[in-house]
């Protein structure tokens, strides 16, 4: 019946939901704000975590908000400690397969490689054009069900 057609349409049109997260003792949130706005302008629904969150808080927020994307912004150099905790937490809830985990900030190449092996989909360094990040999300957002 008609409703099925309507539902199929709404499924396609479902906005991409993103959690933009600041973890740990890192008070630099300009980048997180800029990316939040860029995502919003791209038509995504963005939930911003606020500053100084623990990895467990990020996992809890990602699960409750049922987001498609978790974008972690870290400029403090603590990515090797904090990011795996978020990834593991998502895996514990069985949410990792449905979530695109992105990392933004200053991350050395070697670390980026290791983190990508651990489950991070992509690492975006300084100077990455917003359009590139938005495009990456559009192309790689996990399809559900």
């Amino acid at each position: 019946m008609s409703a099925e057609q309507g539902q199929a349409e709404s499924e396609r049109d479902r906005p991409i939901r993103c959690l933009v997260a600041k973890v740990g003792l890192d008070g630099h949130d300009r980048g997180a704000h800029v990316i939040s706005r860029a995502f919003r302008d791209a038509g995504f629904e963005v939930i911003y975590s606020g500053l100084h969150r623990a990895p467990e808080d990020i996992v809890q927020a990602a699960v409750q908000e049922d987001v498609d994307v978790v974008g972690i912004s870290i400029l403090s150099g603590a990515h090797n400690t904090l990011v795996p905790k978020v990834v593991e937490g998502l895996a514990e809830y069985g949410a990792l397969a449905d979530t695109l985990v992105l990392l933004g900030g200053i991350v050395p190449d070697g670390d980026a490689k290791r983190l990508k092996e651990a489950g991070v989909a992509e690492v975006f360094g300084p100077g990455t054009p917003m359009s590139e990040t938005v495009q990456f999300v559009r192309e790689n957002v996990p399809t559900r069900r």
């Binding site: 919003r40 038509g43 629904e45 939930i47 911003y48 975590s49 809890q60 927020a61 908000e65």
Partner: peptide, 27 residues
């Protein structure tokens, strides 16, 4: 654009790390 920054979670500190609280943002 239909996009939104759902900012209320930022101000909800009591929710973090507590399974007894479930916060959901809606556009």
């Amino acid at each position: 654009t239909g996009g939104a920054v759902l900012g209320d979670r930022v101000r909800m500190g009591s929710a973090v790390g507590d399974e007894g609280v479930f916060v959901r943002s809606m556009s």
